[in-house]
Design a protein around this nucleic acid. Structure first.
Length: 114
DNA sequence: CGACTTTGACCAGCGC
DNA sequence: GCGCTGGTCAAAGTCG
């Protein structure tokens, strides 16, 4: 409800690597094995200062080929390379991924109560 | 040279 | 009261 990062959203995307280049720079600041999942949970933070955006990436427990990406917060600075050639994510997808930030946010909105 | 990454250990809060 | 988990920080090393 209130008094909370206005941007807490969880995404479930199918990808082989958890490294999604969404146009921002993420700095890994921690790794921990949570009991809720047999896999390891990676903690990322926006490298931009003033941008206290936190991101945690974890592999799905029922679908190891899926990655659960949860974002906490919103970006304060513009995307480092949004005007360059880094418009679309560079993560490899065996088949047509068809994922859009707008769609992801829309799906996240539904999953916000997560 | 600068920037980024990795690992371990520590701390706090909560539940029963 | 105790145990457990989750989360964060720091330092060092390496790479282009």
């Amino acid at each position: 409800m209130a008094g909370r990062p206005s941007g807490r959203i969880g995404f479930r995307t199918r990808s082989e690597v958890e490294v999604m280049d969404d146009g921002f720079r993420w700095r890994k600041y921690g790794k921990k094995a949570v009991k809720s999942s047999p896999n390891l949970r990676n903690y990322y933070r926006c490298s931009a200062e003033g941008c206290g955006v936190k991101k945690r990436v974890e592999r799905d427990r029922d679908d190891p080929l899926y990655v659960l990406t949860t974002y906490d917060g919103v970006h304060n600075h513009v995307t480092p390379g949004s005007t360059s050639s880094r418009a679309a994510p560079a993560y490899s997808a065996p088949t047509a991924p068809a994922w859009t930030w707008s769609e992801l946010q829309a799906a996240a909105h539904s999953s916000e109560s997560y």
